[in-house]
Design a protein around this nucleic acid. Structure first.
Length: 114
RNA sequence: GCAGACGGCCGGACGACCGCUGCGCGCAGGCGCCCCGGCGCGUGCGCGGGGAGGAAAGUCCGAACUCCGGAGGGCAGUGCGCCGGGUAACGCCCGGUCAGGGUGACCUGAAGGAAAGUGGCACAGAAAACAUACCGCCGGCCGAGCCCGCAUGGGCGCGGCAGGUAAGGGUGAAAAGGUGCGGUAAGAGCGCACCGCGCCCGCUGCAAGGCGGGUGGCAGGCUAAACCCCGCACGGAGCAAGACCAAAUAGGGAAGCGCUCGAGGGUGGUCCGCCCGAAGCUUCCGGGUAGGUCGCUUGAUCCCGCCGGAGACGGCGGGGCUAGAGGAAUGGUCGUCACCGGUGCGGCCGCGGGCAACCGGGGCGCGCCGGCACAGAAUUCGGCUUAUGGCCGCGCUGCGGCG
RNA sequence: UGGGAGGUCGUUCAAUGGUAGGACACGUGGCUCUGGACCACGGUAUCGGGGUUCGAAUCCCUGCCUCCCAG
């Protein structure tokens, strides 16, 4: 199932996040910032940054859920670690707007890695 | 109609598609262990049935549970504090009492003790706590003066001395009851009436208290969310508690204390008691491991009915199982219908103004647009507090209008 | 998740329950040809809301924010 999202497709540990943020390519969209790094695997993996500065638990959960949904519905060929940093107004935008923003931002990030 | 008080309830509904999670069943295949067939842990697919809240929040109280030795005694410390009841317990809840606030329905209250002791009360003021007397008021004695008078004498104000007073003035948040009448040299509970206060008695209430009568002319400022006294309660930590399995290293360096005259430890105050206890113990530096299972959801539980009670709540009977994740799931898109707000349309209804055309605002209907709060379980309960969208009540209060 | 500590001018520190005070910074004026230094004057604060008290930065309750610790 190409639209599934399992635990293997997630970044979980802090060293993994730091590697993507430091070595990956950063592209900034209207509602989010992406860090993209090739990972030599057959699947892509997702990590979401939801710090306390964004708001309470409800808003941070919503950011994570929306980011997962974007990743799940827009999987490319695979082989990238992607870290999503939502911006402040992220969860106020309609989903289709976010999806368009995500797609164009991700395309720029992946093209930079050839 | 407007404003308000009180109590209770809900926290959008349904459907389609795509996902997440752990439980049960079925299938496929991986790793580890050994007694070679099982056990444990993870993976994928299919089906079935579950999957956030009234506050899950803040972490302000109380408990359950677990470990610390069986939680012993004194001191210290902390918390609570009208009365009766409820509860496993509480700082919570119910019913009452008193005090304060509000026109009222109602609301609020850490509400024991100031004649056990200690402390504090700035500025102002004479005086701020076993009372005193600044400006005053009052009479007496002494001195000198003036006036009236023939005179004994009388009057007026002034100064001094020793007193009597607390009415008036003034200060302050607060000055030894308040108001009125009598009384007096002036005054004063000095006397009287009413109110306040203390004591006694009676009736009433389980009690806090209430009501009534008598009596004393009046004890005595405020502050205990100041120290404190009295009464009651409290051992300490917290699910990262703790238990088990697996893995891992080496007993490396420095300083201090101690070797029976006893260091140190036994979950943190201190002393006593008790226990362990010796060639080591404490602190710092350096190094290793940081994976899994249980605890983990059946409980002071939820729903319904009956009974007891004024109520909080309790008892009995029947039925239900209602999240257990773990860097952390409960999501996304679309449609229909509710609810709220704005706007447009004209069909209808009734109201006010105007002779009328018409104007104003209201309800119903249709269309469009927007909104739909506060907020996310992390061991589990009982409360409190805070945040927040609405609904309901033949109910309650005040004001205004009409009949 | 659990356990603690603390909020005072713009910054950093004070203040037995009795007028919130310095230092640095800031503003104005003086001195100087100008600037600095110096001198004089001035503005600015008790995290919010209640309560106790005659009186609260201080005591009590409650909310908000910040920081620290962990097997």
């Amino acid at each position: 199932m190409i639209h599934a999202l399992t635990r293997r497709e997630r970044l979980q540990r802090r060293p993994e996040f730091l590697a993507v943020q430091r070595q990956g390519f950063r592209t900034r969209g209207r509602y989010l910032t992406l860090f993209v790094l090739p990972n030599r695997r057959d699947v892509s993996r997702l990590g979401v940054i939801a710090t306390r500065r964004m708001g309470g638990a409800v808003r941070r959960n919503r950011h994570k859920r929306l980011a997962r949904e974007l990743f799940r519905l827009n999987k490319g060929p695979g082989g990238f670690d992607i870290v999503v940093l939502p911006h402040r107004r992220f969860s106020d935008a309609p989903f289709l707007t976010l999806q368009a923003d995500y797609r164009s931002t991700l395309r720029r990030g992946q093209r930079s890695h050839g």
